[in-house]
Design a protein around this nucleic acid. Structure first.
Length: 483
RNA sequence: GGCGGCAUAGCCAAGUGGCUAAGGCAGCGGUCUGCAAAACCGUUAUUCCCCAGUUCAAAUCUGGGUGCCGCCUCCA
């Protein structure tokens, strides 16, 4: 499999440290507010990466942290008059709710920064002892000039950055780019005892410590949003390499950003979309399908029109799956719950092999989308041909194709729903009088029996105006919400 | 100012040296239907932002230009 390694700005064959295993650390959220759809994209990207590895038979250790101590949390807690631990826990719970709704699997480890303060103090002490860090009046800073290749990951050079104007002047620092490992807390702020006085760790420490704790000083993949590349990941790497002597992450995977109606999400524009908001407007699978409609590294614009276009496509997929059930029966495999090895090895099924080819190419989910719709067209043709009295051979073939389809769906985290449930959820009218509809359909049926087509059509048009579409099939009239 | 990315049909989006430039949505024509809906079939880019170059051959490589975006400060 090829993965784009940000560290080397190119796609590289992924060769794990230990064959058949992969250690993955992903920067999670800072819990000072509900999570937004950008967090959802990131979570889904790495969820799919982990699902894919597992489906291919690789044993994955997946670690994703919570940052539960930080200035933003402290500020928010002060605003709301709560203590930081309570606030953090509330938003952790909120995050879990959102992830569950989006079918994002739980990582194997979800360490919180506050659980590892002791280890952070130890690592800081190691850095001081090794000469990579220095203490000034209770602050401890990392000396960037001490690490030979500081800036290598993000493609920056120290002297170029020195020329930048936005670096805050801090007289205590030996070099303007030196960053905080430990800082004193103000009264009322969370604090821990340390050799440098009561205080708290700098932001980057937690990821160095927790990745080292669970995965070691050298591990396979480190992931996160593109914005974290600098300074966060650069600094993590610097600390870890200096402290552990390991390589730190061997592959760096960064997901692209999300915009909303072509604008960056920001407080000032007031265009933050929380996952909870999005879930009110769209089915979770629509969101997942949409968030994977473009290659994970590219920017993606969350526009209402584009999401609804995706929804139309997903409805078509589910209609086909629903159609197929008359021959295959309902899908009860629940492949998501047994993803390990689900599509390992070579396959007789052409669709799965092509799926694997796309996914092996840096998770080309957009390419996979094309493949999925090709398959949908195929399946519909098979269903058309099968008619009402299909041969045993064609049913078996249909079953095989549907099975392959659900396996791929499990890797992407879609096709989790029962087709009829999904469709009825899409089509369910919220504010419509059902008995009135049934009555009108009855009247239309009578009119049609009398071949009073004008009257029948008038009734159908009336329903159409109410947002109800009719489908006559085999003498039975079904109705649904116009979507 | 520094670093990086992107530009493919009405919209979204694959494809990064070579058969007729995937796929979705929207539109149009047809099959089916009393008419529709759904589904299927066909159709919608002689061309991939512009210019120059390399090559037998480029959307794909090189150089230049234009436009858009991200990071460099907390950020997924």
């Amino acid at each position: 499999m090829k993965l784009y390694n940000t560290a080397n700005r190119q796609k590289e064959e992924f060769i794990p440290l230990v064959e058949g295993r992969a250690g993955i650390y992903v920067c999670g959220v800072t819990v000072y507010d509900h999570s937004h759809i950008g967090h959802a994209r990131s979570a889904i990207v790495f969820d799919v990466l982990v699902r894919y590895f597992r489906a291919r038979g690789i044993s994955v250790t997946y670690v994703r942290n919570f940052t539960d101590v930080d200035d933003k949390i402290i500020n928010r807690a002060n605003e709301l008059g709560k203590d930081t631990a309570t606030l953090a826990q509330e938003y952790i719970d909120s995050f879990y709710e959102d992830m569950k709704a989006l079918y994002v699997m739980k990582p194997d480890m979800e360490p919180r920064a506050t659980e590892f303060i002791g280890n952070m103090i130890e690592m800081i002490q190691v850095l001081i002892d090794k000469g990579f860090a220095y203490e000034v009046d209770g602050d401890v800073f990392y000396a960037v000039e001490k690490l030979e290749d500081y800036g290598r990951l993000s493609g920056r050079k120290l002297d170029e950055m020195k020329a930048g104007s936005r670096i805050e002047i801090n007289e205590k620092k030996r070099h303007p780019m030196d960053f905080t490992l430990w800082k004193p807390s103000k009264p009322g702020e969370p604090m821990w005892e340390s050799p440098w006085g009561n205080g708290r760790p700098g932001w980057h420490m937690e990821c160095s410590v927790m990745s080292n704790h669970f995965l070691g000083g050298t591990f396979d993949i480190h992931g996160g949003g593109q914005d974290l590349l600098f300074p966060h990941h650069e600094n993590e790497r610097a600390q870890s390499k200096a402290a552990t002597g390991g390589e730190f992450a061997r592959y760096w995977v960064h997901n692209g950003f999300l915009t909303v109606e072509s604008e960056k999400m920001s407080k000032s524009l007031g265009n933050f979309i929380f996952i909870k908001d999005a879930l009110r407007d769209y089915h979770p699978e629509v969101l997942r399908f949409f968030l994977q409609s473009k290659q994970y590294r590219s920017p993606l614009d969350f526009s209402r029109k584009d999401v609804l276009d995706c929804q139309s496509g997903l409805i078509r997929i589910y209609r086909t799956l629903q159609r197929a059930e008359q021959f295959t029966g309902p899908n009860k495999n629940n492949y998501s719950s047994r993803i390990q090895g689900l599509i390992a090895g070579e396959h007789k099924n052409e669709f799965l092999n092509r799926f694997i080819n796309y996914m092996d190419d840096d998770l080309n989910a957009a390419g996979v989308t094309g493949l999925i719709f090709d398959k949908i067209k195929d399946l519909n043709r098979m269903l058309d041909d099968a008619g009402t009295n299909p041969s045993e051979g064609s049913i078996n073939q249909l079953k095989e194709e549907i099975d392959a389809f659900y396996r791929a769906g499990a890797v992407l985290g879609i096709m989790n729903s029962d087709p009829s449930d999904f469709i009825s959820r899409m089509e369910k009218p919220s504010d419509i009088n059902e008995s009135e509809i049934e009555e009108l359909i009855k009247q239309r049926k009578e009119a049609r029996a009398q071949k009073e087509w004008a009257k029948a059509d008038e009734i159908r048009n009336r329903l159409k105006e109410m947002g109800i579409v009719l489908e006559d099939k085999e003498g039975v009239t079904k109705w649904r919400k116009d979507i």
